[in-house]
């Protein structure tokens, strides 16, 4: 049903739609990053699309796998017509894209979260600051090159509590046998860095 949305996008925007697919029944269109807001606004306002229900906005870091590195992913649906569509835009380093906060009010916090986790700069966002992490945090944790275990404590640890305290033994709670996409961890371990 929402195939028609993709057809309509192709019709109206032509070159700006880089690619479409419907894997697992999710209709997806990859949009040129420079026309991101324009396409989004069209989808909201066009009578045949009427995508007024904001669902989700996030990003994926494809570092090393693909060029350009980041992909911003937007899910929207239409309340009346019941169709859904996924829009994607590929952006490189440093990541920057137009903000959709003026198109859907809901995009506001989702973009802040995306900025927090990936460092994507949303141009035109009214209040782009960290939302889940604290302002003192350096780096963006969901990037593949951020080591998962690197903490940035706000308070000093008690001097006696550097290692594990009794009644816990030193090896209690150690992760084992994990396979990971966290390439940074291996790199950090090579440097002899531990999080304590």
């Amino acid at each position: 049903m929402s195939k028609r949305v993709l057809d309509r996008l192709n019709q109206v925007f032509g070159d700006a739609i880089l690619e479409t697919h419907s894997q697992h029944g999710d209709d997806t269109a990859v949009v040129e990053a420079s026309r991101w807001r324009e396409v989004a606004r069209f989808l909201r306002d066009d009578e045949r699309c009427a995508m007024n229900h904001f669902i989700d906005l996030t990003a994926v870091d494809y570092s090393d796998r693909r060029e350009p590195r980041y992909e911003v992913v937007l899910h929207i649906r239409s309340l009346e017509k019941l169709h859904r569509v996924r829009l994607k835009a590929r952006i490189g380093e440093p990541p920057s894209i137009d903000s959709l906060a003026e198109v859907w009010a809901g995009a506001n916090w989702f973009e802040r979260e995306c900025f927090d986790m990936f460092g994507v700069d949303f141009v035109g966002h009214p209040n782009l600051r960290r939302i889940l992490l604290y302002p003192e945090f350096v780096g963006h944790p969901l990037r593949k090159d951020y080591p998962a275990q690197m903490t940035q404590p706000l308070v000093e640890y008690r001097p006696e509590a550097i290692g594990k305290l009794p009644p816990f033994s030193e090896h209690e709670g150690m992760p084992f046998g994990r396979q990971t996409h966290d390439r940074a961890a291996a790199h950090v371990n090579a440097l002899g860095f531990t999080d304590e």
Binding site: P141, Y146, A148, Q149, M150, T151, P153, R158, A161, L165
Partner: peptide, 25 residues
């Protein structure tokens, strides 16, 4: 609260005993 549990990551405090002394776990 005792040791951070299975959240051994960038955001979780690995046990509150790092910050305050604990009497009972």
């Amino acid at each position: 609260a005792s040791c951070g549990g299975f959240y051994d990551n960038y955001t979780t405090l690995a046990g509150i005993d790092k910050v305050v002394p604990v009497d009972v776990y």
